[in-house]
Amino acid sequence: MKDRKDIADSIMEKIERESIKPKPRWEFLLKNYSIWFTGILAVVVGSVATSSIIFAIRNADWFLYRRLSDSFLIHVFKVMPFLWIGFLVLFVLIAIYQIKHTKRGYKYSLAIIVLGNIFVSMILGSVLYVFGFGHLIDVYAGRFVPSYQAIEERREEMWTQPENGLLAGIVLGTSTKDVLLQDFAGGTWNITMDKLKPVDVIILSLAQEVAVVGNVISTSTFEACAVRPWNIFGEHAPMRKARHKEMIEQGRRRWESEFFENDVPGSRNPDEFIDKVLMRGGDVLKEGLRQGGYGERNLFDLRSIECDEVASSSQESQAD
């Protein structure tokens, strides 16, 4: 009993002598909140990285890997967003560490925390991707991160290889036999439509921007074998608007002359006009496909990436 009293006494004496006081409650609250805040922030940053990963993977033009790379693996290596994957891993690790250090963190196994974290990042990242955050982050990274090439820019470069049969750009005008196209590098091309299927002709005639697979016939003539509308998957809507606004300002917008002839340019509200143009552009293409008896499904998939295949198949159909 004496022993017990001695220890209690010595502790109470020490508390008195050294004026030891309980730490204030706010210190614990602050610590707790900062752990949660950092953890949630890490999950959000991880989700943003996920949206950029989805954006990169979705816009990797997988079906073209034979034209663009020696093998599928090399293509994977070329298009994989390693920076964002690194970011995701880093912030998932930070989030796991923070979650483990919350008051209840120890109750959950590491596997549950890791899988839960990845699951949340995937869900939130997918939502962010749908709303165009992957695109937005990628564009800003392209502007501000040294040696980072934005995916949009990389794709435009990738599709400006007429010598390899790839060409994309803005349709400036159409006739019954060919189309005038300005590629993303500023070059002008006549695109011939002889080898195209009817659905490709509709796309080429009505879409504002197109991607074309084919062959260079002469210095400024390109024989198209397959066409699809140029599309950025997971595109950030305000950025698309800005891009089209720029095109209109540069006079490269086909809808302006074809569908808004009665508008008085000076009286237009620019934002409303662009909204109208974007909506109208999509509607025109959809309507064209509907009238031609084609669905919108797989609209952005190229039906063929080899001219020969198209040529032989068209020969076969003629023979039939």
């Binding site: 502790i11 508390i15 030891i20 006081k21 309980p22 730490k23 614990f28 008051k103």
Partner: peptide, 22 residues
């Protein structure tokens, strides 16, 4: 052990506001 015990009780005292009532 007595020293450790004293350290434990001092920690308990200083961290009393951090006692998780759950």
């Amino acid at each position: 052990i007595d020293d450790v015990l004293q350290e434990i009780f001092i920690k308990v005292y200083t961290n009393l506001h951090g006692f998780d009532t759950d």
